[in-house]
Amino acid sequence: MSSSSSCGISLYSEGVSYCASARIPMVYVNVQRGGPGIGAIQPAQQDYLQATKASGNGGFRMIVLAPDSVQECVDMVYEAYDLAERDQNPVLVLTDGVMGTMMEPVVLPPMKTDEELAACRAKFADRAIVGHPLGQQAFCRPGSVGDGQEKVNIDAAAMYETWDKDIRVEEYMMDDAEIVFAAYGISARISRAVIRQLREEGIKAGMIRPITLSPFPYDSFRNLDFNRVKGIIDVEMSIPAQMRWDVDYAVQGRCPVHEVLRSGGQLLTNDQVLKGAKEFIKEVL
């Protein structure tokens, strides 16, 4: 496992692409900071498209998990190992500098047993480049000649097709929501607090929080009852908005989508999100 922040993750691109091509299980964490470039050291959510669509050359995909609490950070790294091992593919945990500097009490998951670790090693024994007898060469290949690379792509595409079962999403107060917040990570935490405030004022607000950003929970948006839902508020620490692309793709213009954004290391606040939400609610409700 490895971790870095935004510009450091860009340096990873080549390596992650190699791992994806060679189908190496690996886990890494991006604690997002302002960008692009060396950007700002303060938190942001400006790597969404890079993380979910193009983490490196070659069109590979990864499962991307987005925690919104320190407990989820712990749980998701643990789960990421299992997913990486299952798919023999890189897995990314996408968080941000606010989460990265928060302290919260957590319950740690149980340690893997020696037997589980031994079973994992045995599973990869044929592929491990540690030396093998003649005729049993293990070749960790980040590229292939002939039609080998196409076969790698075809196999990977087949694996990506199996990921619908891995979609995870939190649908918060969505049963009767007329205004839907779309947010992940720290923006979802802020949105949750704002929704509770709006509810106290009698506004039926709810949130769809993607937990897997890839595979993205398109159906959660696609299948909304647009007779009831009057508008969607995309809350992100990114200008221009990025997760909005996936929201728009699912919503297909069936209701207006508003943005409340900050960027470049500047933090969203409850007040800003509440204010932006109320201006939008005035227009649509």
């Binding site: 190699y18 060679a22 480049i129 540690v130 060469q137 070749f139 960790c140 290949r141």
Partner: peptide
Amino acid sequence: GQFYVTCDETIAA
């Protein structure tokens, strides 16, 4: 040389 050797190998970036 990757095409000629019999030992375990990988290609670094």
